[in-house]
Simulated assay, not measured.
Amino acid sequence: MERWTEIVGATRRDAYDVLARHLAIGFHKGQFSFGFCDALAIAVVGFVYDDFISLGEESWPSFFNEVYLAFDAGEVGQPGTDAVEAFARPMIAKIVEDLADDA
């Protein structure tokens, strides 16, 4: 993460948000599986928490967190409910819709 942010001249918070944007759009378009996106979001969230502890509230990537929580919602559902379809997919669709509206 450090090297990447040096190369592109961004903050780590920006990098997390860019990654989240790619995950959300890729999942929404069917380019990435839920498992891939969820696993990557889980792998990165540890760095997000570490940054928050060491750098403070200014480092918190709110967009990344929104996308992370959407994938998190798809992990577990009630028996007989597909949590990805019931929760994660609609949440991600709303996120992508909001991105398009902001463009």
Rank of each mutant, 00 (worst) to 15 (best):
V67F: 09
P90L: 14
V45D: 11
L19S: 12
E66T: 12
I92P: 05
F32E: 10
G46V: 07
D14Q: 15
A10K: 14
Y68P: 00
E66R: 13
A39I: 00
T5E: 13
F36E: 06
R13H: 03
F47V: 01
P61K: 11
F47W: 07
A20Y: 05
A86E: 13
L55A: 10
T5C: 11
D50K: 10
L23T: 01
L55H: 01
A83H: 07
I42W: 12
T5D: 03
I42M: 07
I7T: 03
A43Q: 07
A100E: 15
W60M: 10
E75G: 04
H28Y: 12
Y68G: 02
G46I: 06
D102Y: 13
A93M: 07
A41Y: 06
P79S: 06
F47I: 00
L69H: 11
D50V: 03
V44R: 13
G80K: 03
F36G: 01
M91G: 04
A15R: 04
V44Y: 09
F63R: 15
L23M: 15
V67T: 08
D101Q: 05
A10D: 05
V8Q: 12
A70I: 07
F34K: 02
M91T: 02
L40K: 07
A39P: 00
M1P: 00
D50H: 07
I95T: 08
R3I: 02
F47L: 08
K29N: 14
G56C: 05
V67L: 14
D102L: 15
